[in-house]
Amino acid sequence: MSLAPYVQILARGQGRARGFTRDEAAAAMTAMLAADAAPEAVGAILMLLRMKGETADEIAGFAAAARNALPDWTGPRPALDWPSYAAGRTRGLPWFLLSARLVADAGVPVLLHGWNAHQGHGADLRAALPVIGLRAADSIRTAGAALGSDGIAYLPLEILSPPLRALLGLRDTLGLRSCINTVCRMLNPGTAPAAVQGVFHPPYRELQADAGRLLGLDRLTVLKGGGGEFEHHPAKNIETFGLRDGHRWSGLTGLSIGGHRRLSEGPRDPALLGQVWRGERHDPFAEAVVLSTAALALDTAGLPDADLLARDLWTARARTIAA
């Protein structure tokens, strides 16, 4: 299928160019994921959209088509979708992995998916997975099995969708971020009813909330987090956007600790996560990151008294986890 008609929609010229409708976006994404997609046209579409600025209809259309192109999900349905696609230089150790583990321990099945180990900035998320008893799944089937047995799974994008991974990798060729970063965050491969999403640029918070509503999400929290991850800085009262019962919602994270430490500061050795988890090392700031992030995720999943529950889960956590 030729992409030329979709390039023409975006690039006809002043007064004639326009954005995609949701259906046009879905059709364009289907064509871009095809093996015979012309790379010149793909690059043109992505950069024209970047210059124009994406709409919620476009992101929803792209994400729906990308999800429809995935293999069928097998295994239990996740209750919480947790995308992880940050590549920013401000990303430090992935403390949010410990938060996700706590959420799973609360009986909320969590599906993590992403692509971020290759960036070379910040700590390697995948090297930290064994700390919470995880290995990167090598198929959708094994991800579903892990979700069923452990309540949590991590599915790499290159396993989930090699064509989408290739589109995301065009950032290295084009030198700029594209809407594919946002599409991946909206992918929700297990069709969970709730999701948490991180952003680096604040305007994307409302964009992703609106796209989530169009995609039928019931509950969503979008946070400007560390390096673009869903990870809360506990010394900052950050405005959040999203959905509650399918309706637009916003709130504030509140403060849980003082100080001015940055999330990216400190050691980058993933072993530190395990030491804090096992209680071998006491780091009040790191623990505050874990607990405040977990509380936001628990609230998103619809659990009451999320702050208290996060603290109780931390106190009762199993100190030893087998990968």
Rank of each mutant, 00 (worst) to 15 (best):
115 W>Y: 13
178 S>L: 02
285 F>C: 00
176 L>G: 04
175 G>S: 08
237 N>T: 11
86 A>P: 03
285 F>Q: 01
19 G>D: 00
121 H>E: 12
290 V>T: 12
160 L>T: 01
312 D>R: 15
132 I>T: 07
146 A>I: 03
32 M>K: 08
247 H>M: 13
201 H>Q: 11
128 A>K: 03
234 P>W: 01
288 A>K: 05
38 A>W: 03
277 W>L: 12
276 V>M: 15
217 L>S: 00
271 A>I: 07
301 A>Q: 09
295 A>G: 00
108 V>N: 06
36 D>S: 14
55 T>N: 07
209 A>G: 14
113 H>W: 07
265 E>G: 09
310 A>Y: 05
36 D>R: 14
124 D>C: 13
90 T>R: 13
169 G>V: 00
81 D>R: 03
180 I>Q: 05
6 Y>I: 02
9 I>K: 02
308 L>C: 11
87 A>H: 13
103 V>L: 07
148 G>H: 12
81 D>Q: 10
110 V>L: 04
71 P>H: 14
184 C>V: 12
320 T>N: 11
145 A>H: 10
312 D>V: 07
26 A>Y: 01
249 W>M: 11
257 I>W: 00
14 Q>M: 08
186 M>L: 15
79 A>P: 00
3 L>A: 04
109 P>D: 10
46 L>Y: 04
231 E>Y: 04
214 L>W: 05
266 G>H: 07
103 V>M: 08
127 A>H: 01
122 G>H: 05
228 G>E: 00
249 W>A: 12
73 W>G: 07
10 L>S: 03
226 G>V: 13
121 H>A: 14
289 V>R: 05
40 E>W: 01
35 A>M: 11
144 G>R: 03
156 P>I: 12
114 G>V: 02
86 A>W: 01
132 I>A: 06
243 L>P: 08
90 T>Q: 13
311 R>P: 02
226 G>D: 11
252 L>H: 13
86 A>H: 09
260 H>A: 12
105 D>C: 00
45 I>P: 01
218 D>S: 13
160 L>G: 00
175 G>T: 09
28 A>P: 02
246 G>A: 09
89 R>I: 09
49 L>S: 03
47 M>F: 06
111 L>R: 07
182 T>Q: 12
62 F>H: 09
236 K>M: 13
127 A>L: 10
52 K>R: 15
74 T>E: 14
140 I>L: 14
38 A>L: 15
12 R>A: 15
33 L>N: 06
99 S>L: 08
320 T>V: 15
50 R>P: 02
273 L>R: 04
112 L>S: 02
160 L>P: 01
254 G>D: 02
126 R>M: 10
94 P>F: 06
52 K>E: 02
288 A>Y: 07
262 R>F: 12
76 P>D: 06
218 D>R: 15
217 L>T: 01
84 S>C: 11
250 S>Q: 15
74 T>N: 10
199 V>P: 00
154 Y>T: 02
79 A>E: 10
83 P>K: 04
238 I>W: 04
285 F>S: 04
185 R>M: 11
192 A>W: 05
272 L>I: 14
14 Q>W: 07
43 G>H: 06
97 L>R: 02
238 I>H: 07
11 A>G: 10
184 C>A: 14
123 A>Y: 02
143 A>T: 08
167 L>F: 03
101 R>H: 09
1 M>Q: 05
144 G>M: 08
251 G>D: 13
230 F>M: 05
318 A>S: 12
146 A>R: 04
34 A>V: 06
29 M>H: 02
97 L>F: 05
295 A>P: 06
